[in-house]
Simulated scan of single mutants.
Amino acid sequence: MNINYFEHIQAPILLFFQSIRNPILNLLFLFFTISTETPVVVIFTAIMYWCIDKKIGRRMLYALTGNIALNGAIKDYFKVERPIGKFGLESMRVETATGYSFPSGHTQTATTFWTSLAVQLKKKWVYVLAAVMAIGAGISRLYLAVHWPMDVVAGLILGFLFTILLIKIMDRSEKSGKYWEMILILVPLAIMAFVLKSSDYTKLFALMFGFTIGYILEREYVSFEVIDRKNMSNGEIIKKNGKRFLIGMLSLGVVYLGLKLVFSLFGAADGSTLDMVLDFVRYSAVVIQGVAGAPYLFKKMGI
C-alpha cells in the first residue's frame, strides 16, 4: 500500500512530538511502550491465567492471540512503511519497531490487554486506567516516531472492537459448551496465511490457533482451577503460585527449544514452505502447552 500522498499530512504531528522531547517525557513514553511488549504481556497474562483468575486470564489470552494474528495479517497485506528515517525524524527504540507500520501492534496490544481486563472487572477505576494505558501506548508510538498517526488510530479501534467480539464468542462458547464459533473465526485468518505466504504471519496465526486447540483440550480433559485461597496463609499462596509460574514457564521453554532443536534436523531453509509449517507447529505447540499442558502438570503435581 502506497501512502506517500498522506505522509506529508501526518509528518507534522510526529515532528511536533519530536520537538517536545525531554528526559522526563522520554521515560514516561518509554514506560508506556515497554508495558505492551511481549515479555511483560506474557508474564502478566500467565500469572492471571495460572494463578489468579482462570476465567479472566483465558479471555485475555484469547483476545491477545486473536488481535496479534489480525494485526499481523493487516500489516503483511498493506505493507505500509514506517516513518523511520523520513522528514528528518529521529526515531527512538527502533529495535522493537520491526515489520510494517499499519496498524500499530503496540497500540493494538495495549488496547486489547486493557479492554479485556476492564470489561471483565467492570470497575470505573479500571476503565479509566485502561483508557489512559491504551491511549498512552498509542501516543508513545508517535512520540518515539515509529508509527504514523493513522497506525495508532487503527490499532485503538481494531484492538477495542475485536477484543469485544472475541470475548463475546468465548462467553457464548462457555454457555453452550460448543466451539464452532471459535473454530469458524480461524477460517479467514487461515486463508490469509495461504494468501500472504508470510513466515512472520504464520507464527502469529499459530498463536491463536494454538490457543483455540489448547482451550478446547483444557475444558474437555484438564479443567484445572486456580489455588483455593481459603484456609491458606499468604505465604502458602505465594509459594504454590510461585511453583506454578516457575514450572509453567519452564515447560514452555522446554517445548519451544525442544521442538526448535528437533525441527532443525529437517534442514528447512528460512522462508520455505517446510520452514513455515514447522514454525506453525512449534508456535502452536507452545501455546497449547501454556493453555492446557502446564495446567495438566499443575494437577498432576498437586499444586
Score class of each variant (00 low, 15 high):
Glu90Ala: 11
Thr107Val: 05
Phe17Val: 05
Glu90Trp: 03
Ala73His: 00
Arg244Asp: 03
Glu225Asp: 15
Ala130Tyr: 01
Met1Arg: 07
Val119Trp: 07
Tyr283Trp: 08
Ala193Lys: 00
Gly293Ala: 09
Gly248Val: 09
Ala73Trp: 00
Ala69Cys: 14
Leu184Glu: 08
Leu261Asp: 11
Tyr201Trp: 12
Ile24Arg: 14
Glu220Phe: 11
Val146Ile: 15
Asp171Cys: 14
Thr202Gln: 06
Asn231Asp: 15
Leu204Gly: 00
Leu274Cys: 06
Ile164Phe: 13
Trp125Pro: 02
Phe16Gly: 09
Ile139Val: 15
Ala131Glu: 03
Lys86Gln: 14
Gly88Cys: 14
Tyr49Ile: 03
Met208Ser: 09
Arg141Phe: 00
Pro188Arg: 01
Leu297Met: 15
Ser101His: 04
Glu37Arg: 04
Glu236Cys: 11
Asp53Arg: 04
Ala118His: 04
Asp53Cys: 08
Leu121Val: 11
Arg82Ser: 01
Ile43Asp: 01
Gln18His: 09
Leu204Ile: 03
Ile135Glu: 07
Glu95Lys: 14
Leu297Glu: 02
Gly72Trp: 05
Phe205Gly: 03
Thr33Gly: 02
Asp151Gly: 09
Leu14Arg: 01
Ile56Val: 10
Asp171Asn: 15
Ala294Gly: 06
Tyr5Ser: 09
Val119His: 05
Asp270Asn: 12
Ser140Gly: 13
Ala118Phe: 11
Ile74Gln: 01
Met192Arg: 06
Phe209Glu: 03
Ile20Asn: 12
Ser198Cys: 09
Ile183Asp: 10
Ile68Tyr: 01
Lys178His: 15
Ser272Val: 02
Glu37Lys: 08
Val222Asp: 00
His106Thr: 04
Lys124Leu: 07
Phe17Glu: 01
Asn71Gly: 10
Tyr143Trp: 06
Ala268Asn: 02
Phe16Met: 14
Ala190Tyr: 13
Lys197Asn: 15
Leu117Ser: 03
Gly302Glu: 12
Asp171His: 15
Ile247Thr: 09
Lys203Asp: 13
Glu218Trp: 01
Phe29Cys: 07
Met192Trp: 05
Met276Ser: 04
Leu25Ser: 14
Lys239Ser: 13
Leu156Ala: 04
Thr98Val: 13
Gln289Leu: 12
Thr111Gly: 08
Asn2Pro: 03
Ile237Phe: 12
Leu144Ala: 01
Pro39Glu: 04
Pro188Thr: 08
Pro188Val: 06
Gly177Phe: 10
Lys86Ser: 07
Asn241Ala: 12
Phe162Ile: 10
Lys300Thr: 09
Glu225Met: 13
Val254Ser: 07
Val255Ser: 04
Val255Lys: 02
Thr112Lys: 00
Phe205Trp: 07
Tyr201Ala: 01
Leu184His: 07
Leu28Asn: 12
Asn67Gln: 07
Asp228Ala: 14
Ser233Cys: 09
Leu89Pro: 02
Glu225Pro: 08
Asn2Thr: 02
Phe205Val: 08
Ile47Trp: 11
Leu25Arg: 14
Lys79Pro: 05
Ala193Gly: 08
Ala134His: 01
Leu144Pro: 00
Pro188Cys: 05
Leu257Ile: 15
Ser173Met: 12
Met60Ile: 05
Leu252Glu: 07
Lys240Trp: 04
Met208Phe: 10
Ile135Met: 05
Pro12Met: 13
Glu7Val: 01
Ala134Gly: 07
Tyr283Ala: 01
Pro188Asp: 09
Ile288Ser: 02
Leu64Phe: 13
Gln10Glu: 12
Phe6Cys: 10
